[in-house]
Amino acid sequence: MANFKNTFLNGIVKENPTFRLVLGMCPTLAVTTSVQNGLGMGLATAFVLVCSNFVISLIRSFVPSKVRIPAYIVVIATFVTVVQLLMNAFLPDLASSLGLFIPLIVVNCIIFARAEAFASKNGPLDSVADGLGMGLGFTLSLTIISAVRELIGAGTLMGVSVLGPNYPGALLFVLAPGGYITLGLVMVAFNAVMKKLDSRRKGAEGSVA
């Protein structure tokens, strides 16, 4: 169980897919124009990641290593399509707010990277933990970036006005260049905090020893 927790936390902080592994940059830059979009994309990705990690872990000994890449892609694409069809049919409200992002998940390299790097080498339970951690880490990163962009760009959060109706808005942050700038700055901040925490932990261990 301790292992489960470590694997889970690993994805959120230590190997955060966006800020540490720098994976899935395409959706990160494209959809983080508002908190609603960032959160939606993150959660949809997390769901598919958990499912695909679980299935790939189950079939890992059946899949010959020479053809693992086409096999994983088929599994992931099938999952995404099934999820999309089911959502369209039975959860139309959710589909109308997330619908745009579902097809994008297939090309999100986080899913494939975790299948290749983790699920193909670990058991189903650990793989689900990894999927949850990585998925929520991705969600957290997208939410932070989109909150910065939405607040500076449009003066709102989740569509609710924060900076008042007279805020002129900064178009740059809503458009693509603002995505790059925000991503860079948030990544710097995240890694600076991580570095500080790391050196403090080492210092504490040193004083005990």
Partner: peptide, 24 residues
Amino acid sequence: RLLVIMVIAGLCLGATYTVTKDPI
């Protein structure tokens, strides 16, 4: 083995499509 995976994936897609076609 690859064929088996593809066939299962295809069957899953076909089944889901049939079930969801009318509701969609």
